[in-house]
């Protein structure tokens, strides 16, 4: 059975019910610390254990989530030496 992740109604239901507490983080607070979170996660820290409020925000905010994942992938590539062989120079 499919979960229909791309279905419009499923997206709307997820959007309505994936909601966090009022006091939780907004984009501004998340954005100004994004490098700290990404650096620690790339070194093996668990976002869910250390910063559940950040994890909750990323689940609700596709823009911040996209930027976090992009930064994380670059940091991981850097740690594994893959950036040194990147052709982008």
């Amino acid at each position: 059975m499919t979960t229909g992740q791309d279905d419009p109604l499923r997206k709307l239901i997820d959007c309505i019910f994936v909601s966090h507490q009022d006091e939780a983080m907004d984009c501004e607070s998340c954005g100004c610390q994004l490098e700290c979170f990404a650096e620690k996660v790339s070194a093996g820290a668990n976002l869910h254990d250390l910063w559940p409020d950040v994890e909750a925000h990323l689940a609700c905010c596709p823009d911040c989530a996209e930027e976090f994942q992009a930064l994380l992938c670059i940091l991981r590539a850097e740690r594994s030496g893959q950036l040194d062989t990147s052709a982008g120079r």
Binding site: A70, C73, L83, S86, A87, G88, R89
Partner: peptide, 29 residues
């Protein structure tokens, strides 16, 4: 920064896979 951006564009962006490496390099620059 260019190496990081190139890595992201070339490895993580499924919407850019149709672009040749030379174009991705220009974008990254």
């Amino acid at each position: 920064l260019q190496r990081g951006i190139f890595y992201y564009l070339s490895r993580e962006r499924s919407d850019l896979t149709h672009l040749p490496a030379v174009e991705l390099t220009r974008m990254a620059e």
